[in-house]
């Protein structure tokens, strides 16, 4: 290979490399524009008044476009949730890690399988084999702590960030 050949090769490779990197950089804005925009990220949080909820009642509120399940758990439900055998849990998490106050279970009501809304918020709903929630889409059963017990869902129902502003007001997000 003589001098001009190797110089030419160098130019080919250098030009090719620049074009590739440049193309990649130019593609990024086209890809990134699809990610949540600034106004979507700057989300307001949701405040909820819990005072009307008696033990055994639930409400669903909307946060970030998704349903959030808030349940005022009964003592039996709390006991069931705390007594769960760790070996039975597919996605192990003690109940104490899932609640700030055991009376109030607050979680994102979106099935961790493919995103359907599980049943169980209404008294008349099917609640599944663990008396918590049941996702009708592909049959996932969640317990009274919202943990996955049976079915295709891989994870427990997600817990959003929240703080109690006072005894009966919670701020989600």
């Amino acid at each position: 290979m003589d001098e001009t050949d190797s110089r030419r090769n160098f130019l080919y490779i250098a030009t090719g490399a620049f074009a590739t990197v440049g193309g990649g950089l130019a593609a990024w804005p086209l890809i990134h524009q699809m990610n949540p925009a600034a106004d979507v990220l700057a989300l307001a949080s949701t405040e909820v008044d819990l005072s009307p909820l008696a033990p055994g009642q639930s409400i669903t509120v909307k946060w970030r476009g998704k349903p959030v399940f808030i349940r005022h758990r009964t003592p039996e439900e709390i006991e069931l949730a705390q007594a769960a055998d760790p070996d039975d849990l597919k996605d192990f998490q003690p109940d104490s890690e899932r609640v700030q106050n055991p009376e109030w279970l607050i979680m994102v009501g979106v099935c961790t399988h493919l995103g359907c809304i599980p049943l169980g918020q209404k008294d008349t709903d099917a609640k599944g084999d663990w008396n918590g929630w049941f996702c009708p889409c592909h049959g996932s059963h969640y317990d009274t702590s919202g943990r996955i017990r049976k079915g295709p869902a891989p994870e427990n129902l997600q817990i959003p960030e929240y703080v109690f502003l006072d005894e009966t007001t919670v701020k989600i997000g």
Binding site: I31, N35, P36, V40, H113, L114, G115, C116
Partner: peptide, 28 residues
Amino acid sequence: TVITNLASAVPVVGTDIVQWLWGDFSVG
């Protein structure tokens, strides 16, 4: 919802891909 959530099956970056598809934290 169900079909875009299929992407969440991808290990590690699944959730990021789904939110990239949605441009949001939920279908909307």
